[in-house]
Design a protein around this nucleic acid. Structure first.
Length: 126
DNA sequence: AATTTGACTTACT
DNA sequence: TAGTAAGCCAAAT
């Protein structure tokens, strides 16, 4: 029987600041700006949107990015190390890698080769 | 309604 | 160096 790690969350979150709901659009907008053949990270996108929503929210936004009108190149977004963590959420587990390779991005072991070089930092929204 | 999980990241031990 | 804790916030169970 698998052990279940329970996280103790005694602290209560109290940020009551509210932002515009267009956080989705902000994420999509940024991701769409990623140049072909380059990649960025969830954290970078999160930071660009104002960092109020942590990197997880970026992944969440991208998970429903299929519904965005213009196609969002979600395959160009990887985690901070360059691993294609979101590959499972594509139509096929290999689609993400294939798309990247089509653009000239080499992928090895679910990791972007020369990720540091190909990393593209999104401009901060103002 | 409460708890867990998740396309993450940073920091501390 | 590696594992754990915590912070984020919404969706799923």
């Amino acid at each position: 029987m698998p052990l279940k790690i329970k996280r103790k969350n005694t602290e209560k979150t109290a940020p009551k600041e509210k932002e515009k709901d267009g956080f989705f659009d902000a994420v999509y907008d940024i991701v769409r700006q990623v140049p072909r053949g380059q990649v960025t990270t969830y954290g970078a996108v999160a930071e660009a949107t104002g960092m109020r929503t942590s990197a997880r929210m970026v992944g969440w936004a991208l998970s429903v990015s299929s519904k965005a009108k213009p196609r969002v190149p979600a395959h160009r977004v990887v985690n901070r190390i360059g691993i294609l963590t979101g590959r499972r959420h594509f139509a096929t587990p290999t689609l993400m890698q294939e798309l990247l390779e089509q653009e000239g991005v080499k992928v090895q072991d679910d990791t972007v080769v020369d990720f540091k070089k190909l990393f593209w930092e999104p401009p901060v929204l103002q």
